[in-house]
């Protein structure tokens, strides 16, 4: 078992004929992900990746031809909201958006629209999903995690890899890893993932990786107190970040006294979460 994606997921890739998209599509395919089609307007009819994957002009055409139920979006940020709307309107149930730098008002329109349609979005500004041994949707390097019973949810990208790698080094495997992204407005949040990990029989332990900015970690802590019975370990990035400065991620900023690492750590510890001093400490806290 896993959450969101497994070997039955039928995935299309939007924007996988570009340089980065193609590189990662190749990696997804090699991993064994069921990548059934690509979408690039104007390139319909071509075949990519040694003739293994057909390209369509639109998500609708790709979905109708393949029965795809998930899409991973590699298009640049200025076209990303259009790509998300297109996938949602074509009947895709799970959309994973990698792009960083989508305007926040675009994301508000996207999120409100998807909520009305009941479509799940993971990201944007995220590394995607990995269910080790079954499916890799996005850019998480496949070889840094093994299958196991730890559910991982994170606002970060490469910091997540760090944690997966640390778990693997100690022989600990992962049920599913979800990168929810570092933007202030995103799709799936901590609570969505915590709820699914709590229900997932394969997941026995949970790792939550947060960072400064917003109050998502505080809300997650409250949810853990009331709803999560499985042990949770965590880490919060940005303890040394100066206030008022955006630390790379659009969402990672301490503003008006909210979003501080120290408050998030306290909230999580009060909820019984073991919070690591540095990410390589996480395996021993589980």
């Amino acid at each position: 078992m896993s959450i969101f994606v497994d070997k039955n997921t039928k995935l299309i890739g939007q924007g996988i004929t570009g340089r980065e998209g193609l590189f990662h599509a190749q990696r997804m395919l090699e991993y064994g992900t069921n990548l059934v089609a690509g979408v690039t307007p104007g390139k319909g009819g071509e075949w990519i990746l040694d003739g293994k994957v057909p390209v369509f002009d639109s998500v609708k055409l790709a979905q109708e031809a393949t029965g795809a139920n998930a899409s991973v979006i590699f298009v640049p940020s200025r076209f990303a909201s259009d790509a998300i709307f297109e996938a949602a309107d074509a009947g895709i149930e799970l959309i994973v958006c990698i792009a960083e730098g989508i305007p926040v008002l675009d994301m508000m329109r996207v999120r409100n629209y998807l909520d009305q349609k009941g479509v799940r979005l993971v990201g944007p500004n995220c590394p995607g999903l990995l269910t080790p041994g079954e499916a890799k949707v996005g850019i998480i390097p496949g070889d840094i995690a093994i299958s196991g019973d730890v559910g991982v949810v994170s606002r970060s990208g490469t910091l997540t890899y760090e944690v997966l790698y640390a778990l693997k080094e100690k022989g600990m495997g992962v049920s599913t890893c979800v990168g929810i992204g570092g933007d202030p407005i995103n799709g799936t949040n901590f609570i969505d993932c915590l709820r699914l990990f709590e229900e997932d029989p394969k997941t026995k332990k949970i790792v939550l990786i947060g960072e400064i900015g917003g109050t998502d970690e505080e809300q997650a802590a409250e949810f853990i107190t009331n709803n999560v019975t499985k042990p949770v370990a965590g880490f919060i990035a940005g303890q040394t970040a100066p206030p008022g400065k955006r630390m790379g991620h659009a969402g990672a900023i301490v503003q008006g006294g909210t979003g501080l690492a120290v408050d998030k750590i306290k909230a999580l510890e009060d909820a019984g979460v073991r919070v690591a001093k540095h990410p390589e400490e996480i395996p021993k806290l589980l």
Binding site: S154, R155, S156, G157, T158, L159, T160, Y161, E162, G182, I209, E211, I212, F235, A237, G238, Q239, T240, A241, K245, M247, G248, H249, A252, K277, H278, P279
Partner: peptide, 25 residues
Amino acid sequence: MVNGAGLAMTTMDVIKHFGGEPANF
């Protein structure tokens, strides 16, 4: 010099944890 904002912040935090002072994000 780090790739990824979360890891860049973490790298700063870990330097501080081991008694150093980061010069930049």
